[in-house]
Design a protein around this nucleic acid. Structure first.
Length: 415
DNA sequence: TCTGGGGTCCTAGGACCC
DNA sequence: TCTGGGGTCCTAGGACCC
């Protein structure tokens, strides 16, 4: 039986806490960051049932006195980095999983800083004193249990799970707290009378597989017994990069689709090029008025990272999706993503790119020319900022669209 | 004026290969 | 008499996470 050295640290209601930090008049009040959609809610707002991702209108119905505030996204970036940086003062074994959340394995530094409990206490105190933010920490032997412990600890708490009492701690909790159990899985389990993690642990493996599929069934069964072999992964490269844009209700016409795809392809490929990455699979997503969405994808022989090529392929894919749904005249979202990501390698790789473009779409410009055009644009942006130049960016400015600052906040480092 | 943006992983069927 | 069978890749859809 190992020691409980895994920490999971999670800033509480992060965006909302930052807003309450910046503006004392908001403290103790129900606030929501966002407008059309709630990006984050304070604990006071959560008490009314307001949740992240909820439509602003619905949130206002639940909580009429709810105060909507615009986000200070630069501050989220700075404070999130600073909080995770506090973990990094103890150990390099930090795995950041989002702007406001990270695992840290302190096994190698207890001789310097004390027990995991002492380390967690210092971390919480420092984040509170130096940054002014509440952060909850869970301590356990495994990642999954540490994460659950931090959820149980919220708000502004600390929970350590004794390795000898793991199953006692785990088995009375509701299945919905487990990683990988969302609304659909929770409902399926409920249908079988499985409400707690303990009941899940007792369920026959065969029936879980039948209910949830092979991988999910096996995974949940293992986690219910706290068999979680995952270790901290300090950095791993992204498998895909994408961009999307909610459009409101727009006609499914070239005038809407072309500039939007250009803009999205530009966003995605400039991020790839910045890391010298290329991708082989282009996927588009089209959402219709009733919120049903379809995807179309194409895998190329050779990887690409040029905006125009990705955009042209995306157009074809969107047309194909629309052709399969001829009655849909209105679209509400377009998305472009590039996967099968790999390293660009040396310039030798560029020549086949052009050839691949030619094979794919005869008569278009060679890939090399496209790439150099993109590189020139990258250089301008490096000097003058992201908005200095872009494909069709001007037409896309929408009053109620999400600010670019928020977009970059959500972007994972492609590393 | 319903419903953001960026990701990961899994499943299932068909193509293709040995 | 049935069905040979396993593996990989691609595509479309879906669940889930922050």
């Amino acid at each position: 039986m190992g020691e409980a050295t895994m920490l999971h640290a999670d800033l509480d209601a992060f965006y909302a806490s930052v807003e309450q930090l910046l503006d004392p008049a908001l403290r103790g009040k129900p606030i929501a960051v966002g407008g059309g959609v709630v990006l984050a809610a304070s604990y006071e707002a959560k008490a009314f049932g307001v949740r992240g991702g909820m439509a602003g209108r619905k949130a206002r119905e639940l909580c009429p006195q709810l105060i909507f505030v615009q986000g200070h996204f630069g501050e989220y970036h700075r404070l999130g980095d600073a909080a995770i940086g506090v973990l990094g003062d103890f150990t390099p074994l930090v795995e950041r999983i989002s702007i406001d959340e990270a695992f840290a394995d302190v096994a190698g530094c207890t001789h310097l800083f004390g027990t995991p409990l002492e380390i967690a206490t210092i971390i919480r105190r420092r984040v509170r004193e130096e940054l002014g933010l509440p952060i909850s920490v869970g301590i356990a032997r495994t990642k999954h249990l540490a994460k659950i412990a931090s959820q149980v600890a919220k708000p502004d708490g600390l929970v350590a799970v004794d390795p000898l009492g793991e199953l006692e701690f785990l088995h009375d909790l509701p299945v919905g707290l487990m990683w990988g159990v969302g609304p659909v899985t929770e409902a399926k389990l409920k249908g079988e009378g499985i409400l707690t993690i303990g009941q899940l642990a007792q369920a026959p493996g065969r029936s879980l597989r039948g209910l949830l599929g092979e991988a999910a069934g096996d995974k949940l069964a293992a986690l219910a017994w706290n068999r979680d072999p995952r270790e901290v992964e300090v950095q791993h490269r992204s498998r895909s990069a994408g961009a999307q844009s909610a459009l409101g209700r727009k006609p499914a016409t070239d005038a809407v689709i072309k500039p939007t795809l250009r803009h999205l392809a530009d966003r995605v490929t400039s991020r790839l090029r910045a890391k010298s990455l290329v991708g082989r699979t282009i996927t588009v997503r089209v959402r219709f008025a009733d919120m049903r969405a379809v995807t179309r994808s194409m895998t190329l022989d050779a990887p690409i990272a040029t905006a125009v090529t990705v955009s042209d392929i995306a157009e074809d894919l969107v047309r194909s999706a629309l052709a399969d749904h001829p009655r849909e005249k209105t679209i509400t979202l377009l998305a472009v993503s590039v996967s099968h990501i790999g390293e660009q390698g040396d310039m030798q790789l560029e020549l086949p790119l052009g050839l691949a473009d030619e094979r794919l779409r005869p008569g278009t410009r060679p890939g090399l020319a496209r790439l150099s055009a993109d590189r020139a644009m990258d250089a301008v942006r490096t000097r003058f900022g992201r908005d200095a130049v872009g494909y069709a960016a001007a037409q896309l400015r929408r009053k109620n669209s999400v600010p670019d600052d928020f977009r970059s906040l959500a972007e994972k480092d492609l590393g």
